[in-house]
Amino acid sequence: MQTNSNQKRSNNINISKMRKAFSFKPLALGVASVLLSACSGGKEEAVVFKNVNDCVDALPSMAQKCETAYKGALAEAAKTAPKYNSKNDCEYEFGRNQCQTYNNSGSSIFMPLMAGYMIGNLMSPRPYYQPMFTSYSRYSSYRNNWVGADGRNFGDSRRSKLSVSSSAFNKKPAITRTISRGGFGSSVRAKASWGSRSSGKGWGG
């Protein structure tokens, strides 16, 4: 259909990207649960290093960048890695001796050790980086794979060169320990008990 600049409606809508069927599945708990839109953005090359030495060996001229990215990734790992209430829960997912204590507001929780860090856009003055984890647990679907803080699986951990979508380097929400839930929604419970409103109808207007 013809479009012109004077029309009163959206010129173009990317129909294939608009939802075909809504997912009403709640996100499950745990590391494996993030729903990812794998299709957004282009692909780019990334390299995973196990530590700073590993990086400097491969890229002697970029020692400073190796160091900076490593420190940044460690800090990011502390913020965004999955957190567990017990060491057992953490080791169940990542393997024996693969977890460390994370101190948060005076109490201790557990998170996996950073197993490596992924660097992208290497030639730029400020390369991107993300912490990477791996699992040695035979109970985990991440066993011997590289996995991001949000549960994204990057495949076999013996590989160091990856082709990833550019969104893999996006900033992720920080993870913390939740102490209480359920403090929103009481108005709805109260008003829903009133007569004719049946489920399916929302609270917007």
């Binding site: 709640p26 109490s107 913390t176 320990r177 102490i179 839930r181 403090g183 929103f184 929604g185």
Partner: peptide, 8 residues
């Protein structure tokens, strides 16, 4: 909304 939590 009902699942929103508060962190330490």
């Amino acid at each position: 909304i009902e699942d929103i939590g508060i962190a330490e």
